[in-house]
């Protein structure tokens, strides 16, 4: 457990920074909703939202969202929280394993009487705790933010939580992928670059998929669409199929990472 606590200690300051970022966005994100809500009366906003061609909705990130409702509005904010969470998780996964080789402490830790599995395990779970903490913060702050904007009415909490599960799954997916890349590659710089590319590409593909019906098939390729705000709001729960996909893939990623990490040479100085 010593390695586990060591990792927790090393990472908490960074986590605090990210939490601050989340809270900052929560503070500023809801102010436009009143404007949207005001227009609701004329029913024109809904008409627009429903009849706009796809790309136009995509520009405002409003695809398939009923922005006159608070939950629909929150759906616009959702993608940004998902992005932040994804970046945090992916980078954490990649860095937490590769940092020993990056900082040249590999000759310290890997010559200790512990197996590589236990080192990896301690790091994996310490990182997971961090992910969960960030998730809880995003979840709670969103519930509070939505509730306050809803005139201190917290009935939407259930719907907000639905969306939050999507974020947790996206986090897990990219976290395990980051762990895998760091376990595979000997050079500590490579995994960070790759996971960042994957996350940015996933976001771009997600955007593209919303631009036109011809491109809708792209949604199968990116977690940001598997758990997109519209699908989560409209169906009321995460798509169980995609949950299974994420669980299976995350397990595979972690398994591959664990296997290769034990087999490969550790990079020294």
């Amino acid at each position: 457990m010593n390695m586990f606590w060591h990792e927790i200690k090393s990472n908490y300051k960074s986590l605090l920074g990210w939490i601050a970022g989340i809270l900052f966005f929560q503070l500023s994100g809801y102010s436009k909703f009143q404007g949207f809500k005001a227009a609701q009366g004329s029913s024109s906003i809904n008409v627009i939202a429903n009849s706009f061609p796809k790309p136009l909705l995509a520009i405002f990130g409003m695809s398939n969202l009923n922005i006159a409702t608070l939950i629909g509005y929150f759906g616009i904010l959702y993608i940004f929280f998902a992005l932040i969470a994804a970046i945090y998780s992916g980078l954490l996964g990649a860095n937490i394993v590769s940092k020993e080789e990056r900082d040249k402490t590999s000759e310290f830790i890997y010559t200790k009487p512990v197996s590589r599995t236990s080192v990896l395990g301690a790091k994996f779970f310490a990182g997971l705790i961090n992910i969960l903490i960030l998730f809880v913060i995003i979840n709670l702050s969103s519930i509070v933010g939505v509730g306050i904007t809803n005139s201190n009415n917290f009935t939407l909490t259930g719907q907000v939580t639905n969306l939050m599960w999507g974020i947790l799954l996206i986090q897990t997916f990219f976290y395990c992928m980051g762990i895998m890349f760091a376990s595979i590659f000997k050079s500590p710089k490579t995994p960070t670059v790759i996971i960042a590319t994957v996350i940015v590409a996933s976001y771009f593909i997600s955007v593209l998929s919303e631009l036109s019906t011809n491109l809708e098939w792209l949604k199968y390729l990116t977690p940001f669409q598997w758990f997109s705000a519209p699908s989560l709001i409209n169906s009321g729960h995460v798509a169980y199929g995609y949950v299974i996909v994420v669980v299976i893939l995350s397990t595979i990623f972690t398994g591959i990472g664990w296997y290769i990490f034990n087999k490969r040479d550790i990079t020294v100085v």
């Binding site: 966005f25 436009k32 940004f80 932040i84 980078l91």
Partner: peptide
């Protein structure tokens, strides 16, 4: 130590502020 861990979040913060600014 990791340039990307600094660059990526920073850029995205500016990006998200821009998106928020647009929406808001």
């Amino acid at each position: 130590k990791t340039v990307l861990s600094v660059a990526l979040p920073t850029v995205f913060i500016f990006f998200i502020v821009a998106s928020f600014g647009g929406i808001l």
